[in-house]
Design a protein around this nucleic acid. Sequence first.
RNA 1: GUGCCCGUAGCUCAAUUGGAUAGAGUAUUAGACUCCGGAUCUAAAGGUUGUGGGUUCAAAUCCCACCGGGCACGCCA
Length: 552
Amino acid sequence: MDTTPLEVLKESIFHLLRAGHDLPAGDPVPFRIGPSPERKFGHFSTNVAMAYAKVLKTPPRQIALSLVKGLEALPDIESVSIEGAGFINMLLKPSYFQERVLRILQGEYTANFSLFPPDPIQIEFVSANPTGPLTIGHGRQAVLGDVLSSVFQKAGAALTREYYFNDAGKQMKLLSRSLWVRYNRLCGSEYEIPEGGYHGEYLSGIAEGLYREKGDAYRDRWDDSIEALFTERAKNEIFQMIKRTLESIGIRFDVYYTEGSLFRDGTVDEVLRQLRDREALYEKDQALWFKTSDFEEDQDKVLIRSDGMPTYFLTDIAYHYAKYRRGFSKVYDIWGADHHGHIARMNAAMRALGIPEGFFNVILHQMVSLRQNEEIVKMSKRSAHFVSLDELVQKVGKDAVRYFFAMVDKDSQFEFNIDLALSRSMDNPVYYVQYAVARIHSLFENARNKGLLFAEFQNINRLDSEDETFLIRDLLLFPEIIREICATQQIHRLTNYLYGLAYAFHNYYTGHVFVDLKQPELSNARLNLASACQKTIAEGLKLLGVSAPERM
RNA sequence: GUGCCCGUAGCUCAAUUGGAUAGAGUAUUAGACUCCGGAUCUAAAGGUUGUGGGUUCAAAUCCCACCGGGCACGCCA
């Protein structure tokens, strides 16, 4: 699909404006057309008159008045009114909506858009280190990334979902040692978990497996090869755990990219060479520094420590350099707000490497905090203070988890009250939306049982009441939501929309009989309407990764 | 201290990105067809949008200053 219903209307309005006024040169003033807030204001309304008041040096109401005649002459318009400061409200003819119901049934408005150029893009998200199970914090990001990816794809993006896997560096060393301490405890030797190490219970399970297999072969023994063995063991088992968790909420990545590969294939050296050639590096206190301050308002950063170990920042630069070399035209990193300080220096590095502006993009989201007994606690894997995503999925299920995380604006931090989330699982609005789909399915079952033969696309002209045109109006907003999400990355607009649509349907359902053998044509028309609702809601749920069950 | 995000009904969150009388869910109260699924629907009540200024036809939204919360300011990731 290329043009949405609202864009068509907007275009007509702009034509009328241009025909009746001398528009000043330059960019057109942005204005809005959308569903009217109340029925008494018609189906759609626009603020075009207010938007242009300043440049035309004309009072808004006067501009609005100048457009009324032209609007009323349009074939789809029933009537036009001007309200308030200069809102133009439009009531459209039933024929307009009847024609569009057919398009919905044919799948036109739920088809893919072409908002994106055909060049490959990438979204990278979750990318949690394999040092422990995923938490509900990761759950939020996982859902945000996955739904955003689906929406981008719906909008025509050639998109790769990617998970960056930190399998090298200091954290792995700490993890390895933490596991070794657990293992030794089983053997009967007591050691301290290192400073900054991992205290979570999940390591005990891995240690037990190791102990069962190898006995006390590594008791009180610690060298490079044993460290490597413990690293491998911990990393692999935890990563499988993470994959299983993601799978349980329906998330699969196209690519898992490992940090280690950047060393093996020479990307890290290549990046250092390039930065050196561009004179963006210097040595100080036996460490190698990047001149971040040459490119951004930020302090210089260490790339290689005085002990020769590369920093996370260096490999991260190399990783993004590799993304560019792999041919993506644009990449999006989804980061929690705790990483926002990293943005400026990453931009600095991209610039230093000559990577074009706009290639590297960050989508930030706020944190999930945990409420326990009136106290907000920070989740941390290292301190083992967290609620695991697995626990939540097991208690409330995949659909509720996905909807739950998708419905909150990514820029709002939200307090997660675990007891509330678990005890009120049945109040999750996902069931409200799903119920609409199930209800429609049973309507068709009912029609069949009563012997009413459903004819798709037939009797649409019987959909002519206000209740019907307004319901169809809501259906037509679906493509607008896709556009808005692409522009704002706010996936909660989708849950808002679906909830509103489900509400509109439930409301209509209560006031109208769908299957009435005495009125077979009207019934058939309404079943077509129900089908259009089902199609639209199901498409939205699909983007959310939530099931649209026929029965609940 | 500096930078970023946030502050909306008792609680959890919205508000078409500057628009019309700030809305839903939940909790409370009162109701709904002997009929297509009551996991639904209708209504009441609930607000000085943290505070004080400013910008304009119009501010929860933009600007400034305070207050409060979160996050970041490492040779951690």
